[in-house]
Simulated scan of single mutants.
Amino acid sequence: MDSARKRYDLEEVEIDLEESSDTSEYDNEEEPQTLWRANPSLDEEEDIHTSTLVEISDTKPLINVRDPRGINDCLKVTFEDVIAEPVSVRSGDRVWIWSHALFEVSRVWIYRIVTVLLAIPMSLISGLLFAILSCLHIWIVSPCIQCLYMGTRWLQALWSIVLGVVVRPLFTSAGKCCGGFSIHLAKE
């Protein structure tokens, strides 16, 4: 079945962008079949109910989009953000060009060296930390909170009664008393 699907996926689809209003150029006077619409593949039919999040694997890193939520926007630092010479004080042009080049090269290569040394251990530590925190939250914190809600259901009912019997009438009457006042501003 997979070989049939692969053959179907590799089929070429021609796209005819010419207008089909002129039928005289066809030999048998039949209108040609529309070539711009390809038949849906079996993969598309199976993936109708899946979202784009399902297509992205948890283990396959996104190479092109490494900060999709913009978490590290504050780290988009260029040479001009760090070093700037005013018009009144200037170094030589060659000094400026070489310092710019050394800044960029050292920033990129030192980052790459440090990430080679730290990325794998830090990702392992972060993965372990988030796994432990997730496990604690799912199996300890959430059940304890649910037990607390179940045990204090009577307290919630009592508090709503106190609010309905004491606090609501008090603020309703205060609002009606203050609602009778009106302020009129007049120019003299």
Rank of each mutant, 00 (worst) to 15 (best):
S3F: 12
S3C: 08
S3W: 11
S3N: 11
R7H: 09
E11V: 10
E12W: 11
V13L: 04
V13I: 07
E14K: 08
E14A: 07
E14R: 08
E14T: 05
D16R: 04
D16P: 00
L17C: 10
L17V: 11
E18R: 08
E18D: 11
E18P: 01
S20E: 13
S21L: 13
S21N: 11
S21H: 09
S24C: 04
Y26S: 03
D27V: 09
D27M: 08
E29I: 09
E29V: 10
E30D: 09
E31S: 05
P32M: 07
P32K: 05
Q33R: 05
Q33E: 09
Q33W: 06
L35Q: 06
W36L: 01
W36V: 02
R37V: 04
A38N: 01
A38D: 01
N39P: 01
P40A: 01
S41D: 04
S41P: 00
L42V: 04
D43C: 02
D43P: 01
E44T: 12
E44A: 13
E44V: 09
E45K: 14
E45L: 15
E46W: 13
I48L: 13
H49V: 06
H49I: 07
S51Y: 05
T52M: 14
L53A: 10
E55L: 14
I56C: 05
I56M: 07
D58L: 06
D58S: 06
D58Q: 04
T59P: 02
P61W: 11
P61T: 07
P61F: 11
I63N: 03
I63C: 02
R66L: 02
P68T: 10
I71D: 01
V77A: 01
V77K: 02
T78L: 10
F79L: 03
A84H: 13
A84P: 02
E85S: 06
E85D: 08
V87L: 10
S88G: 00
S88V: 05
R90M: 11
R90V: 09
S91P: 08
D93M: 05
R94G: 01
R94V: 08
I97T: 07
S99I: 03
F103M: 00
F103H: 02
V105L: 04
V108Q: 06
W109H: 10
I110G: 00
I110Y: 04
Y111S: 06
R112N: 06
L117V: 07
L118Q: 01
A119G: 03
I120K: 08
P121N: 03
M122R: 02
M122V: 02
S123Y: 06
I125Y: 14
I125C: 08
G127I: 03
I132Y: 14
L133P: 01
S134I: 08
S134D: 13
C135S: 14
I138W: 11
V141E: 04
I145W: 12
I145R: 11
Q146R: 14
Q146P: 02
L148D: 07
M150N: 15
T152C: 09
W154L: 13
W154D: 14
W154Q: 14
L155P: 04
Q156A: 13
A157Y: 10
L158K: 12
L158T: 11
W159Y: 10
W159N: 07
I161D: 12
V167M: 12
V167G: 03
V167E: 10
V167L: 14
R168P: 00
P169M: 13
L170P: 03
S173N: 11
A174M: 15
K176I: 15
K176Q: 15
C177W: 13
I183L: 15
I183P: 03
K187R: 15
K187P: 06
K187T: 14
E188D: 15
E188S: 14
